[in-house]
Design a protein around this nucleic acid. Structure first.
Length: 456
DNA sequence: ATAGGGTTAG
């Protein structure tokens, strides 16, 4: 009895250390406990698995699974749920599916949470149909869906480009007695903002307020980000300071959003001040925060400092991601070191990274800006996927050189790929064609752009 | 433990 009680205390200790990124201290507490005769149980190991999934990477989490089996403790459904969710969070989606299979084969019966996590994983894989199958399965089985189950569905639909269906689902659920929570509203407000349906988003915000739900930090960050996306910086910053005045506990999300805006505006002093405040405030320093910091150094031209941060990211076991590398390659390009940028690109390819569209776009843009359009075109032709950024960079710079017919051809292939062309790019090419006497070509291009928009 | 944050063109 005494021993059970002690294990409970141990678990509280371990869980709280794991929560605040102090994995080493959590391990020390466990060792001290064993020395005193207090043995860790499933709950202890589950807390460790959870901590490592968040802060130490999946390999560290798997090693806990190994350790607990060695100690004669069997993983339970919570262990697997934590691992599956962790793999999903760490972008190892295939591993999540394998783990689910492994759980079934170990004779562990999945619970509602397992299915929620599985749904979430399918949505992240871009397979809404598979997620929906799981959803139907939960409803048909004798498992009671939780409000989280519905929120996961609504969120997944929004993230997979089916925001309208998400709204329809909400209305249907409401007819069956589902009471949306603030989370539900936050999900839909963000979804609507991202597809540009601002008025609908504000309607939902008011609906939430009418139900007595007070907007929280998530709501504010969502609205702030939506302003920055539309380049309404003043309005976005107003929301940022309103958050502060209302006494919301600032977290990394709000800070990174605001600093991102400062960088876009070129307000480096402001960005530095806020980054210092974040570090002082003691909020968890995660990969997104690091990436924001790397971006700040790159934009200031402090590449040495940026590289030091990359080392720190790896040292902490967070692992640089596509964002980090795109930011550093852009930084090298801006510093005029295209050779270094290409070397870094080769380096990430040999480290097992897939092709990085944003980094390639940065290189193309830089080649154009230094007048090496030939190099830009060569890179362009080697790319399997392109986006609006790729075409915009090339088209504008071709125009600058007076090569309007070439730019026109490019826009047409862009339209064929179903990629939108910015109004300013259209104008640059069409006006250029007109001014250099290719009036009929200009007319043809305009017609084709309009036709493409009709079918969009 | 379902929601918000970080990269590129004009």
């Amino acid at each position: 009895m005494v021993c059970r009680y002690s294990t409970k205390l141990l678990n509280i200790c371990v869980a709280s250390y794991c929560k605040c990124q102090q994995m080493q201290k959590a391990e020390i507490v466990i060792i001290d406990g064993i020395r005193l005769g207090i043995l860790p149980d499933v709950v202890t190991y589950n807390a460790l698995v959870h901590g490592y999934c968040r802060f130490g990477g999946m390999d560290a989490a798997y090693s806990v699974l190994f350790r607990m089996r060695e100690a004669g403790i069997n993983p339970n459904v919570i262990t697997y749920n934590t691992l599956i969710a962790g793999a999903t969070r760490n972008r190892s989606l295939e591993q999540s599916l394998n783990l689910f299979e492994e759980m079934l084969q170990s004779g562990i019966t999945p619970d509602v949470w397992s299915y929620n996590i599985l749904m979430h994983c399918f949505f992240k894989l871009g397979k809404p149909d598979e997620a929906n199958k799981v959803f139907q399965n939960v409803i048909l089985k004798d498992l009671y869906p939780l409000s989280t189950t519905f929120n996961t569905m609504i969120n997944g639909l929004c993230k997979n480009g089916h925001t309208s269906n998400a709204i329809i689902l909400l209305k249907n659920l409401q007819r069956h007695g589902f009471v949306p929570q603030l989370v539900t509203y936050n999900i839909l407000i963000d979804g609507l903002c991202k597809v540009g349906r601002l008025r609908a988003a504000l309607r939902l915000l008011n609906e939430a307020k009418d139900l007595g739900l007070e907007p929280n930090a998530v709501t504010y960050t969502t609205l702030m980000k939506s302003c920055f996306r539309r380049r309404q910086y003043e309005h976005g910053l107003e929301i940022f300071f309103e958050m502060k005045n209302k006494g919301f506990a600032f977290d990394g999300f709000a800070y990174c959003t605001a600093v991102g805006a400062f960088l876009k505006l070129g307000w480096f002093e402001e960005a530095n001040v806020w980054m210092a405040r974040v570090i002082k405030s003691g909020v968890g320093i995660d990969l997104v925060f690091y990436n924001t910091f790397v971006n700040l150094y790159c934009k200031e031209g402090k590449l040495e400092a940026a590289y030091k941060l990359l080392d720190e990211i790896e040292l902490r076991g967070l692992g640089c991601d596509d964002y980090t590398h795109a930011i550093i390659i852009d930084g090298l390009c801006r510093a005029g070191n295209i050779k270094g940028a290409r070397q870094h690109l080769n380096y990430i390819y040999t480290s097992g990274f897939a092709s990085n569209l944003v980094a390639l776009n940065c290189l193309i843009d830089r080649y154009c800006k230094v007048g090496q359009i030939g190099h830009a075109m060569k890179l362009f032709k080697s790319m399997e996927t392109k986006d609006s950024f790729t075409y915009t960079s090339l088209a504008h710079n071709l125009c600058k050189e007076g090569r309007f017919r070439c730019a026109s051809k490019l826009l047409l292939s862009c339209l064929r790929g179903g990629i939108k062309v910015l109004k300013s790019t259209q104008r640059a090419v069409i006006d250029g064609l007109c001014d250099s006497g290719f009036t009929s070509e200009a007319r043809k291009l305009r017609t084709k752009i309009r036709l493409a928009q009709l079918f969009h």
